[in-house]
Simulated assay, not measured.
Amino acid sequence: MTGLALGYGAPAGRAATGTASAIPIAGAGQRAAGSVRFEAVSKTYLSSAGAVHALDGIELEIPAGAIFGIIGRSGAGKSSLLRTINRLEEPSSGRVLIDDEPIGSLDENGLVALRRRIGMIFQHFNLLAAKTVRENVALPLLVAGVPKAEIDRRVSEVIGLVGLQGKEQTYPSRLSGGQKQRVGIARALVSRPEILLCDEATSALDPETTLSILRLLRDINRRLGITIVLITHEMSVIREICSTVVVLEKGRIAEKGPVWQVFGQPRHDATRALLEPLTPSLPDRIATRLLPAPVPGATAVVQIAFSGQTQPDLSALAAAAGTPVRLLQAGVDEIQGHAVGRLLLAIGGGPAADLTERLRRLSANVEVIGYVPADD
């Protein structure tokens, strides 16, 4: 991707200066713009069934340059919150600030300028079927009245950035889902926004394509320093790309924090429900024979959860148990440099209280979840 100079340090609508070079890597003070703050934001919809409180007193800060995830179950308020950032939704109360400036009082011209600073990509791509890749990407600049030479330059730059060289004259019907989403990303970036909003941007894609799109977004954030705010109902998406996550439930913040912390120590039932698809279930051969209390010859089934620690030392666990240990199941990821996950162990001998006390010297999150016959 050499020969590209997107000029992301330039104000919106102004051509970048300087010679063409590789896409700049963010840092060294290139960008300070792109922060978002919600102050007591609420949103109520009125319907024939009565008032629906989509958002209720949201207090939240998204720093410039972050990759910030908003997750929740259907109806949690994710889309309503995301769309207040570019005023596609107006809060019923409270206010939204971009770079410490409230956006609720902007006039028509101010709102147009704001939306040029905020790009958006969608679940179903929203491409115009009768226009080529190049024409779809160029559309925001045509509407803004940017000169043709500038349009040609910028469109070529972002098409190169998203890896669609050679597809410029292709129509959307001839593109894969992943390629369509890359067109959507290029179109969102061509106006040189400070903030990129992603509305379930990978929900229509298969897992392999989802991973490639998330890696592209992460690379865009790294190269350009652009703030990325994404909403999803999939914790796997959050784990792959985000640094910070907020969990919404019924229009309120259930919990928020660094991704590794929320994954490793979920405090709210909504978070635990969202994490359940990523949590291995107890093997059937264990679950069907699990007893609530020990019987002669029984083996304790011990769960050790890891959150923010170094990778578990199995030899140290066996030494601490002081008795034979068998690994039944393991699922430990490294998220943002922190070990997050759990081990399921079969440990024989000794009262449960003594066993857990010995193991807690190595990990605080130890739980005896039951007992099985020793031959399991």
Rank of each mutant, 00 (worst) to 15 (best):
A113M: 12
M235W: 06
D99V: 00
K78P: 06
A138L: 03
L46V: 15
C198K: 01
E59F: 04
L46H: 14
L214V: 02
A318F: 03
R37K: 11
L82P: 10
A293V: 15
S48Y: 12
H233Y: 12
G160Q: 10
L345C: 11
L362F: 12
I98N: 13
G18S: 15
L343F: 06
Y371W: 15
I98S: 14
A12N: 02
E168R: 08
V259W: 06
G69P: 04
E208H: 07
P283H: 00
H53I: 15
L55D: 01
L164K: 07
S243V: 09
V41E: 10
V146A: 05
I23D: 00
V96C: 08
L345D: 08
Q169V: 08
R361E: 05
V237C: 10
E89G: 09
G13A: 10
H338L: 00
V340N: 09
G7H: 03
E240Q: 13
L355C: 03
A201T: 06
K43Q: 11
H268M: 13
A186W: 01
V368H: 11
A26T: 09
T232I: 09
D199T: 13
L82E: 07
A129L: 00
R361L: 04
G166F: 05
P172E: 06
Q329T: 08
G322P: 10
A76P: 06
A129R: 07
I159G: 13
P140E: 04
P324Y: 09
E334R: 01
V302F: 01
V112N: 14
V183R: 00
L327G: 02
A287N: 11
E249N: 08
Q181M: 07
L205T: 09
R360G: 10
R252E: 13
L161D: 07
I347C: 12
K167W: 12
E255W: 05
A305R: 15
D206W: 00
G163M: 01
N109I: 13
P266L: 05
Q30R: 10
E334S: 00
A10V: 03
A22E: 12
I220S: 04
V155D: 00
V36A: 04
V155H: 02
L291A: 15
P207K: 10
T356N: 06
E168H: 07
L345N: 09
E249Y: 08
T244M: 08
L175Y: 14
R218I: 03
E90P: 00
K180F: 09
G337F: 06
E108W: 15
R14Q: 09
L6R: 06
A305I: 13
I185V: 14
H53Q: 14
H233M: 12
T209Y: 12
S48N: 14
D99G: 00
L82S: 10
G27C: 15
I58K: 04
V237W: 07
E255V: 02
A40D: 14
N136Y: 01
G29Q: 10
L282N: 07
I23Y: 06
E135F: 01
S42W: 11
S236P: 00
N109A: 14
A305G: 13
T227A: 09
V41R: 01
P91I: 05
G160D: 07
P193V: 08
S307P: 11
I121W: 04
I85K: 06
